[in-house]
């Protein structure tokens, strides 16, 4: 390929400003002495200029407000999912811990721990105490999670 042909291939990129400084200088030097390349470079420059001035799409006026509302909605939905998952996990953990602790206390106490005339280690009272503790913990967690999500409303 001769110089003319190799420079001609660079003309669109020259008009796009996408050549290295050295290539750009080569193109400009050749265009000064080659009428065909000069005309073609001018033509490419017209295209480049046209591409810079294309009719602009108008951005919808409420786009930012709608985007912020969507972000808020999706974050709230994600928070609800996460909270439900966390509470389920905590409930399962607390029951497993309660049963494990019950078995341990029974083993260590020989199956009898009397509080206010009731054997606490028998299944019924132990279940009632565990249920009360789990309910209080769940309520406190729900309150904490609720406060945190209110604090997160910053959009």
């Amino acid at each position: 390929m001769n110089t003319h042909e190799s420079i001609r291939k660079l003309l669109p990129l020259a008009a796009a400003g996408a050549l290295s400084q050295q290539e750009q200088l080569q193109v400009e030097a050749h265009a000064r002495v080659c009428e065909i390349c000069r005309r073609e470079l001018d033509e490419w420059s017209v295209y480049a200029s046209g591409l810079r001035g294309l009719p602009q799409p108008s951005t919808p006026e409420t786009l930012i407000a709608r985007t912020q509302a969507r972000i808020l909605r999706e974050r709230e939905a994600a928070a609800v999912r996460w909270n439900a998952f966390t509470l389920c996990g905590l409930a399962v953990f607390s029951w497993v811990a309660s049963i494990g602790f019950w078995m341990l206390v029974r083993e260590l106490s020989g199956g009898h721990v009397e509080v206010l005339g009731t054997n606490l280690v028998s299944a019924g009272p132990w279940f009632l105490v565990s249920f009360a503790v789990a309910s209080i913990t769940a309520a406190a967690t729900a309150l904490l999670v609720g406060n945190r999500s209110d604090a997160g409303r910053v959009l």
């Binding site: 799409p57 930012i64 910053v154 959009l155």
Partner: peptide, 23 residues
């Protein structure tokens, strides 16, 4: 994680980003 900064960033890029996606 300070989401109140998002408004300013979105406002800065809204036209360019929308145009790019539109194209």
């Amino acid at each position: 994680g300070e989401l109140d900064a998002l408004g300013a960033v979105m406002a800065r890029y809204q036209h360019r980003l929308y145009r790019f996606l539109h194209r």
